[in-house]
């Protein structure tokens, strides 16, 4: 039973990440590969708060989105002028910087050894030690993020983001400060991603830089493309499928070391097949 709760927690964490990625990439059309960096920032905030400062993880759940928002706003202010592949390269650059800092600022991040002994969340007098108890927090945060994303996609703000995705130059003509919208979307997406990082760090109780590489960002791309670009339910479906499919390899006799490698191959193959045969994904109505 613990295994099922474990999978549900991982699906919830990736569901949050996929929803955030969908907001920035699906709704706004900003090709970002920095998702893993903001996820990592959230995780490191949780790790540092817990181990260095001795603070409760629930404080990190509030602090991480704020800290990440400040970083994203500083970045986004210069990134907002970029589009398409230029934006992609700029965010890739940021992810590389994040990884370098995480590996080398040893006194803060623990360097390549990472941070171990991160505490489990303690709330209402209960410490969420088991997957069975942790799942409630994970689902609660996922629900909050899903509500925020749904609210945004139904608002005038969300419609403007869609118009930016379609033709930001044309939208400017109608009185929109497009760069402000892009900055807002990027910042909100980054903040939401950091929540997943806090949950992840607190659940595993250990983090290191290898957990937040470009592979994670590609996985997020695969999730929202599989589920369907610019749909929240598509992002959730993509997260569910791309966690469950590789997990299912365990049950068809693949050794653990091979199933780990196969995971990346599966993500790659799914992306290739989707681009060839179903670029809109399962629920999608839009093309990238």
């Amino acid at each position: 039973m613990d295994y099922i709760f474990h999978i549900a927690i991982i699906v919830s964490i990736y569901g949050i990440l996929a929803l955030a990625q969908n907001l920035v990439m699906g709704e706004t059309g900003l090709l970002t590969i920095a998702g893993a960096a903001f996820y990592g920032i959230g995780a490191y905030v949780a790790g540092i708060f817990s181990t260095s400062l001795g603070l409760n993880i629930t404080i990190a759940l509030v602090a991480a989105p704020l800290i990440t928002a400040v970083i994203a706003m500083i970045l986004g202010t210069s990134f907002a002028r970029f589009r398409d592949d230029y934006f992609l390269l700029a965010t890739l650059g940021f992810l590389m910087i994040f990884n370098t800092v995480a590996k080398n600022w040893t006194s803060l991040t623990g360097g390549s050894l990472g941070i171990a002994g991160i505490s489990k969340p303690h709330m209402f007098g209960i410490t969420l030690l088991t997957p069975e108890s942790f799942i409630w927090l994970a689902v609660f945060v996922l629900l909050i993020v899903a509500i925020i994303c749904y609210f945004i996609s139904r608002s005038s703000f969300g419609r403007a983001l869609n118009a930016i995705r379609e033709d930001e130059e044309a939208l400017k003509i109608f009185g929109y400060k497009v760069s402000t919208y892009k900055l807002a979307s990027f910042t909100i997406g980054a903040s939401l991603s950091s929540l997943a990082g806090v949950l992840f760090a607190s659940y595993l109780t250990f983090i290191d830089p290898t957990l937040f590489t470009v592979n994670e960002s590609i996985l997020l791309w695969a999730m929202i493309i599989l589920g369907g670009i610019a749909t929240n339910r598509g992002a959730l479906m993509g997260a569910l499928l791309l966690i469950l499919i590789p997990e299912s390899l365990r049950f068809i006799g693949f050794p653990d070391e091979i199933s780990g490698l196969m995971r990346q191959c599966i993500y790659g193959l799914i992306l290739i097949f989707l681009m060839l045969y179903r670029p809109k994904g399962i629920f999608g109505k839009y093309n990238l």
Binding site: S156, N162, E166, A170
Partner: peptide, 19 residues
């Protein structure tokens, strides 16, 4: 230059609502 992957009515609504 339309917002091609948006509905016709959304192409109009987006220029009517809050900036």
């Amino acid at each position: 230059r339309l917002f091609n992957q948006m509905k016709v009515i959304d192409n109009i609504l987006v220029v009517l609502t809050e900036r």
